[in-house]
Amino acid sequence: MEKFDKLTGVAAPLPIINIDTDMIIPKDYLKTIQRTGLGRGLFSEMRYREDGSDNPDFVLNKPAYKDATILVAGDNFGCGSSREHAPWALLDYGIRCVISTSFADIFYNNCFKNGILPVVVTPEELEKLLDDAGRGANATLSVDLEAQEIRGPDGGVIRFDIDPHRKHCLLNGLDDIGLTLEKAAAIDSFEGTMSAERPWT
């Protein structure tokens, strides 16, 4: 998993509440278990017209936001079904951080396992960040995980809380497999002992 330390990039405003995982990546894209290629389907029902052409009114189709790496979204982001394809699609598009006032639990957990930082802020802080993100090409935010700070284009600072273990995992690029491999020496030692004591197993 790619490490997350500091991220400076364009923030796209998506002030919609209850964005569920089907809105993030519709069920038509769930036929694959590959993590790549899903960026094309991200928000597809809002992003494309019925004929497949880009919807110019959708934020990620606007020139200023096509390369957004941060999403500032409404309350209860990632609700609905527990599909892990949702963070995969965000990551494949290039979104590394989602900021909202709250997240659905399963989506929130899946973000950390896939190298995305979900940041919880207050409603007042979200309004400020949505205003910052509304500046188009000047909507650059800086997210510092180590310092647990978001810096806006005008220099304002918002601090956020995060579980220390999850912070450690993101800073070091550790998913569940990575955490297990950190204990590889102890696992090898245990298996060696078991093989010596129980050669019949």
Rank of each mutant, 00 (worst) to 15 (best):
M1K: 10
E2F: 12
E2H: 13
K3D: 09
D5A: 06
D5T: 08
K6E: 15
L7C: 12
V10S: 06
A11D: 10
A12D: 03
A12W: 01
A12T: 06
P15L: 05
I25P: 00
P26R: 03
K31W: 09
T32G: 00
Q34L: 11
R40S: 12
L42C: 07
F43V: 06
S44L: 03
Y48T: 08
D54E: 12
N55A: 08
P56W: 02
P56Y: 03
D57T: 15
D67C: 10
A68E: 05
I70F: 03
I70D: 01
I70V: 10
I70Q: 02
L71Q: 06
A73L: 09
A73I: 07
G78S: 02
G80S: 04
R83S: 03
E84M: 03
W88P: 00
L91N: 15
C97V: 13
I99C: 01
T101W: 03
D105S: 15
I106H: 04
F107G: 10
N109D: 11
N110T: 11
C111E: 01
K113A: 15
V119E: 01
V120C: 14
L129E: 11
L129C: 14
R135F: 11
N138K: 15
S142L: 06
V143F: 03
V143D: 02
V143N: 03
V143C: 04
L145K: 02
I158E: 00
R159D: 08
H165G: 12
K167W: 06
L171H: 09
D175C: 08
I177N: 05
T180R: 07
T180Y: 05
E182G: 09
K183F: 09
K183R: 14
A184R: 12
F190M: 14
E191A: 11
T193C: 07
T193Q: 13
M194D: 06
R198I: 10
R198H: 15
T201A: 14
